[in-house]
């Protein structure tokens, strides 16, 4: 399948973070994990992440993807028994070392507008070799209307501003910067962890 993200049709508005060209081949095998600091102008937000490989001609190729509704960001502690909603009853969905979202109604935490929160997102598993000279790219989008029902945001609200605090919120407006500073230690920084073989 050829996913062309150089001129994306369904996800026009996305933030792109591209690494410098790799000095050696890199095999990504397993579940990539992204930790992001995000804030929204509304009580909720959607995150669609794509991991891409950019070749020497500048063309991007799909590696894997992930998505998360930010209000469902609560993860289960590692020792929690598997969810009863699983089709297999006692489920085997316990990947060691990876956060697992509970998706329970009781765990839903809506956002305070413009206050950043920490979100952990596990990508779909993959196995992919990025060659020397190619770059790794993370694309972040806030909606994917072709495949997903837009998240409900309340009466008359049909868009929201999604802010990604890449470097601890340093380049933000004054008010947000202050609030960020208070919670900086807890929130940490944005990062992408790749399972490298």
């Amino acid at each position: 399948m050829d996913y062309d993200f150089t001129d994306s049709h369904c996800l026009r508005q996305q933030l792109l973070f591209t690494s410098s060209p790799l000095s050696a081949d890199l095999e990504i095998t397993g579940f990539p994990l992204a930790t992001l600091l995000v804030s929204s102008s509304q009580p909720d937000a959607a995150l669609f992440l794509f991991l891409l490989c950019v070749d020497t001609q500048g063309k991007a190729h799909y590696i894997t993807e992930a998505c998360l509704r930010v209000s469902s960001r609560a993860t289960l502690p590692p020792s929690t028994p598997p969810s009863p909603s699983s089709s297999l009853g006692p489920s085997v969905l316990c990947y060691p070392g990876l956060p697992r979202h509970s998706f329970r109604r009781a765990d839903v935490k809506f956002l305070t507008p413009d206050v950043p929160v920490r979100v952990e997102i596990v990508f779909q598993p993959t196995s992919y070799r990025v060659l020397r000279g190619q770059s790794i790219r993370l694309a972040v989008a806030g909606s994917n209307p072709r495949d997903f029902l837009p998240i409900p945001l309340g009466e008359g609200v049909d868009f929201y501003d999604l802010t990604l605090h890449v470097d601890g919120g340093k380049d933000e407006r004054a008010g947000i910067e202050r609030r960020m500073e208070e919670s900086n230690a807890e929130l940490g920084r944005c990062r992408l962890v790749l399972p490298v073989v």
Binding site: L47, C67, L68, S87, S91, H101
Partner: peptide
């Protein structure tokens, strides 16, 4: 196959995969 119908196909990441 799907291990967890909720998070593998119905509501990936908590969002309804309406298209599919």
């Amino acid at each position: 196959m799907f291990l967890d119908v909720y998070s593998d196909v119905g509501f990936i990441g908590g969002m309804h995969l309406r298209g599919f």
